[in-house]
Computed example of a mutant assay.
Amino acid sequence: MRALQQLRVLEIRGCPHVSSKGLSAIAVGCRQLAVLDIKKCFNINDNAMLQLAQFSQNLKQINLSYCSVTDVGLLALASMNRLQNITVLHLRGLTPNGLAAALLTCRGITKVKLHASFKPLLPKSLLDYIEAHGCVLHWRDKAFQVEMDPKGWKLHFGKSPEAP
């Protein structure tokens, strides 16, 4: 159990059986977590984001793409002081107003990957403000994909190249 307390990088991409309850337990037990990839974990929602915001204060990078996170969860993450890099492609519960509020709330954010469909929905003055404060916005016009790892899981060992 002690090794889990020191966990810094976790990729559970494409795991349909991982739930918010499971990720919440990880947040509570793995407080050194700095990099988290939960892309295509469809059963992860705002409840887990609230736990991450409370217990994973070392989180610097997260990929939420295809999760069931809404404005509420994204705003909770935006309150984290160390969060620098976030990917939010294809979040069904994300609205332009929620995204705008989260972008304004993030203090240390330096890189955000967003779906291009949001660009015309956000005020240009907001985008200029965010970029003027050192955040690089990457716009992706990526089609929604539902394919998953046939086994439903993927293990990633070793140090992530983007890990701090």
Rank of each mutant, 00 (worst) to 15 (best):
A101T: 09
L121I: 04
P120F: 05
L126R: 07
F118S: 05
L36F: 08
S68W: 08
I86L: 10
D46G: 03
I44G: 09
V112D: 08
A132F: 10
G134E: 02
L75S: 12
L91R: 01
N47H: 12
S68H: 09
V112H: 09
L36E: 12
A100I: 04
H115C: 14
N81K: 13
T110C: 14
C106M: 08
L127E: 07
D37T: 06
S56C: 13
A100Y: 05
N81T: 09
L94C: 06
K111W: 14
H90Y: 10
F42L: 14
T110L: 11
L50K: 13
V35D: 13
Q57G: 10
P120K: 05
E131N: 08
L127I: 08
D71C: 00
G73H: 01
A116E: 13
K119G: 07
N43E: 15
S117W: 13
D71S: 01
L91F: 04
L104F: 06
M80S: 02
L103S: 01
D46E: 10
A78V: 03
G73K: 02
K113R: 15
M80C: 04
N97A: 14
I86W: 04
G108S: 15
P96K: 08
I130T: 12
V72L: 14
F118W: 08
D71W: 00
K40D: 14
K40Y: 13
L83W: 01
V88E: 12
F42W: 14
I38K: 03
G98P: 08
L83P: 01
F55R: 00
A100H: 09
